[in-house]
Write a protein that binds this DNA or RNA. Structure first.
Ligand SMILES: [Mn+2]
Ligand SMILES: [Mn+2]
Ligand SMILES: [Zn+2]
Ligand SMILES: [Zn+2]
Lengths: 143, 143
DNA sequence: TGTGTAAATGATAATCCTTTTCATTTAGAG
DNA sequence: CTCTAAATGAAAAGGATTATCATTTACACA
C-alpha cells in the first residue's frame, strides 16, 4: 500500500509548507509511477505538466518530501563512497550523522534473510548494504 | 583484525594485476588509516609519497581493490539517489545490478539489531539502510 | 476580497565528483 | 635485456548537485 497524492499534500501543509503547483506536480509524478525515479526522471515528467518548472525546485521538493518520509529514498549504486582497509570478517557500519565517525560491527548474519529473499523473489543475490545512521555518544552530549 | 599491506599486494598479484608504485602507495595510505577515506582523501595522502600520482589512478585502483574485496567500501550519505512514493509500512529493497529493477520487501524487523547496537556502541540510532544487490530472474536468463 | 510578507521559484553560475580519452611510460614475463 | 600488454596521468568531458539572487506567489489575516 502506498501513500496517496492527497495524503502527501495534506502532510506538507500540516508541516507548514506551501502547496504550490510545482509541488503538486512533483508529487503527482512520483505517485503516478511504480518505479524509483531519479531527480532527472522526475524533472522530465514534471516538465510535461508544468513546462516552466526548474530542476532546482525538483531537488528542493524531493528533499522536503524525503525528510518528512512521504517518499522513499533509495541509494542507487553511484557515487558517494569512502573506503577503508578490508577485514577478513564481513562487517557492517554505524555512521554518526553529526561528526561522520564510522564504527564497524560484526557478528550479525544476514544470510537467512538473503536466502528467504532469493527464494521469494527469484533474485540471485550478489551483495548487500547494511548501515545504520545515528549520533555517537560524543555528539549526543554536545547537543 | 584488518588485512595487511603485504597481504593486499600479494592478492593483487595473484589476480594478475601489476604491482606498481602507485598502487603500493594507495594501499599504504588505506592501510595506514583507521578511518574511511574518500577518493579525494586518498589522493591527498598518496600524493605525499608519490607527487606525480594522478587522481585517475586513485579511482582505478580503488575500483580494483573493492572488487577483490581487499578494501571495504562505505556508502556515505551523498548523491546517487532515486525516489518513489512512500509506503506506510517500512520496507527495504532488492536492486537488480543488470537492469536496475527495484523490488520492495517488508516483514523484516531490524529493530532487535538496532537495540543491540545502541546498547553496545552508545549510538542513538536514527535510521538505517538495508539493500540487496543481485540479478533478477529475467537478467539471469539473458546471460 | 484585497494586502503584505515570508516562502518559494527558476535562470544561471558555480561546485563537485567521476569517467573518458589518448599519448606516454613501465612492470615484469620470457 | 627486450618486448608488450598493462598502467599511468594530463586534460577534457560529463553529470549531478548546490548556491545565488532577483522575481513571483501562496495564503494568513485584515
Ligand atoms: Mn568498515
Ligand atoms: Mn521502495
Ligand atoms: Zn558523532
Ligand atoms: Zn534485472
Amino acid at each position: 500500500m502506498r501513500l496517496t497524492e492527497k495524503r502527501i499534500a495534506a502532510a506538507l501543509r500540516e508541516h507548514g509548507y506551501k502547496l504550490t503547483p510545482q509541488r503538486r506536480v512533483v508529487i503527482g509524478a512520483i505517485a503516478a509511477s511504480p518505479d524509483h525515479l531519479t531527480p532527472a526522471d522526475l524533472y522530465q515528467k514534471a516538465h510535461q505538466d508544468h513546462p516552466t518548472i526548474g530542476l532546482t525546485t525538483i531537488y528542493r521538493t524531493l528533499e522536503i518530501l524525503a525528510r518528512l518520509e512521504l517518499i522513499c529514498e533509495l541509494h542507487a549504486g553511484g557515487s558517494c563512497r569512502s573506503y577503508t582497509i578490508g577485514a577478513p570478517e564481513h562487517h557492517h557500519h554505524i555512521i554518526c550523522s553529526v561528526c561522520g565517525e564510522v564504527v564497524d560491527f560484526s557478528g550479525y548474519d544476514i544470510s537467512p534473510l538473503e536466502k528467504r529473499l532469493s527464494r521469494e523473489t527469484g533474485f540471485e543475490i550478489e551483495g548487500h548494504l547494511l548501515e545504520f545512521i545515528g549520533r555517537c555518544q560524543n555528539c549526543q552530549q554536545n547537543a
